[in-house]
Amino acid sequence: MSLRLDGDVIRFEGQCRVEDTETLVALLHKAPEAKLDLAACQGMHAAVVQAMLAFGRPVVAWPTEGFLKDHLAPALAGLRPTKL
């Protein structure tokens, strides 16, 4: 499982694949206040990115993986990191 709810934070771990998208959406519905922690995320399918855009939840930590760090964070300009 690359997505899990940990208190009020949804943690992304490893590769978040297209199969994980509905897991994320269900979690976002289940925990309307949850924020996103992408620190351990190594890769993300576009469908996962799209769900993040749609729900617009605050991101508390961005990925460290090269492409995600260099391009994804700036690309999702609306979801700037917020302090917990």
């Binding site: 297209v18 998208t21 509905e22 994320l24 959406v25 519905h29 576009a46 469908a47 990115v49 799209q50 769900a51 855009l53 749609a54 729900f55």
Partner: peptide, 10 residues
């Protein structure tokens, strides 16, 4: 509530 996760809208 009607969000379709697998219809690409990007």
């Amino acid at each position: 509530a009607r969000y379709d996760p697998f219809t690409c809208n990007l």
